[in-house]
């Protein structure tokens, strides 16, 4: 599993798309928001938590279809399936690799973009915490969606349609944590729920992902 993780990370860095594209998309969406809603600082402060979360979610969505599609095209997937690595392990590794290449950079970049949206100072720790706890779930749920659509040509749009409803609870608790934080309230409950969703996703979704992969390999 470590070999697969190392390979995926190396590929993401070499191909260039993995890191850069998602981050650039995140930045562009955040820059576009004030053009849409106006430059008024108080308005931006109020919508910043939600906008940051939605933008991070969309940026994570962008690279989902690459998770299995590349391995499917060059034939690595059947070779991995016949290797000693269980497919559940492959699924888990793919989810972790996706988080390390998109979720983690997005989390680290979010505070900088928070300045652009005039995010309340009290909200920064909550923004970091909620993204750090929530984006792993986004990656694992997305890996599951990618496994469902791996056999479909141009499945990218369908993938978004399948994955976005599954993202609802994560988004709600994530944005709520930042919102409560920016109002100076305690955000323990949404943060706990967020970690719950993440743990739950990583505990169960690898099995569903592996089942979907097996079906698609038939």
């Amino acid at each position: 599993m470590i070999a697969l993780l190392a390979r995926d990370l190396r590929l993401a860095v070499r191909a260039g798309g993995g890191f850069g594209l998602g981050l650039a998309f995140f930045l562009i969406v955040i820059v576009l928001i004030p053009f849409g809603v106006g430059p008024e600082a108080s308005v931006l402060t109020r919508i910043a938590p939600g906008v940051l979360w939605v933008a991070a979610l969309l940026a994570a969505l962008l690279s989902l279809d690459r998770i299995f599609a590349l391995d499917h095209e060059d034939g690595s997937l059947p070779l991995l399936a016949t290797s000693p690595l269980p497919l559940e392990g492959v699924a888990l590794t793919k989810g972790v690799a996706h988080w390390l290449t998109t979720g983690l950079p997005l989390t680290l970049a979010a505070p900088a973009l928070g300045f652009l949206l005039n995010l309340a100072p009290a909200a920064y720790p909550y923004l970091l915490a909620s993204l750090a706890l929530g984006t792993p779930a986004l990656s694992m749920i997305g890996t599951f969606g990618a496994a469902l659509t791996v056999g479909i040509r141009r499945g990218g749009l369908l993938l978004s349609l399948l994955v976005l409803p599954l993202y609802v609870p994560t988004l709600i608790f994530g944005a709520e944590a930042v919102r409560l934080g920016s109002d100076g309230l305690s955000a323990t409950v949404p943060l706990a729920m967020l970690s719950g969703i993440t743990l739950f996703s990583y505990a169960l979704l690898p099995f569903a992902t592996a089942a979907a992969l097996r079906i698609n390999l038939r």
Binding site: R7, R10, L11, R14, A15, D71, E73, D74, G75, S76, P78, L79, L80, T82
Partner: peptide
């Protein structure tokens, strides 16, 4: 068991040794 087909599972961005 090992399976090998027309598709090699080779990553263009990695070297031969990698």
């Amino acid at each position: 068991g090992a399976y090998a087909s027309h598709a090699d599972g080779i990553k263009a961005q990695l070297s031969v040794t990698e």
